[in-house]
Design a protein around this nucleic acid. Structure first.
Length: 220
DNA sequence: GGCCAGGACACCA
DNA sequence: TGGTGTCATGGC
């Protein structure tokens, strides 16, 4: 299985090239992005980040003090802006009450303890917390999502109905705990899911078509 | 004009 | 435990 995953990763990387995911100026900006990107394309997130930056609110202290109405207006491009403002505030409330507003202190916690703490914050679910741990904290934790389920079930490597934990366990069991690999692999899966392996997949151009039971079965 | 994005939560059976 | 509705912008 390990070799099969290696083949899949190499095929994706050859096709899409390095994805350079999560370019950000600061760890705080990355965390804000992780919350804002929920159910929205990254392009919209970048607009909101730019708005926050121009308003000089991209520090924990300033965003914590900012009025909700002001934040709502600035992050409108990211959809569900009222909910996401509450989520940002919930995270900041946690950061200041538990870690004195210090991200370095927060990331000094052991992985599992930090994951548990972040999951208890309103608006931070499993995918968001694992994205923060992997992309900001550099912990070797694999981020899975709907694309992962869709692609790997079509490949016949995972059942169609599978929980988040089971999917994550699959990658943790079959890959070395390599932060850079996990980082790039998730980004590659996203690229495939976003551009090709859709509900109506473009199997003709899929770099994994030779490995995919569904693509071969449909003789595309 | 319709579809769908780098989800999470509340509610219900 | 799993399914469904809600949130409510912008690009293609």
């Amino acid at each position: 299985m390990r070799q099969k995953l290696e083949t899949i990763y190499n095929s994706l990387f050859s096709y899409f090239g390095p994805r350079n995911w999560w370019q950000a100026k600061t760890p705080f900006e990355m965390i804000v992005g992780a919350i804002l990107t929920q159910a929205v394309s990254w392009g919209n997130v970048q607009k909101a980040i730019k708005n926050l930056e121009e308003a000089d609110l991209l520090t924990p202290e300033k965003l914590f003090q900012a009025e909700e109405e002001r934040i709502e207006e600035l992050i409108k491009p990211t959809r569900y802006f009222r909910m996401k403002t509450k989520k940002l505030k919930a995270f900041l409330n946690y950061l200041f009450t538990t870690h004195q507003g210090d991200l370095t202190q927060m990331f000094n916690l052991p992985l599992l303890e930090l994951r548990e703490q972040l999951l208890s914050v309103y608006g931070i679910g499993r995918e968001t917390v694992d994205s923060i741990l992997l992309y900001v904290g550099n912990f070797p934790i694999f981020v899975v999502d709907e694309y992962t389920r869709r692609i790997f079930s079509r490949l016949g490597l995972l059942p169609e109905k599978i929980s988040y934990e089971q999917m994550q366990e699959f990658f943790h069991t079959n890959l070395p705990p390599d932060t850079r690999l996990f980082n790039e692999f998730h980004a590659q899966i996203d690229a495939l899911g976003n551009q090709i392996c859709r509900p109506n997949p473009d199997c003709m151009h899929c770099p994994l078509a030779q490995l995919c039971e569904k693509a071969q079965g449909s003789k595309i």
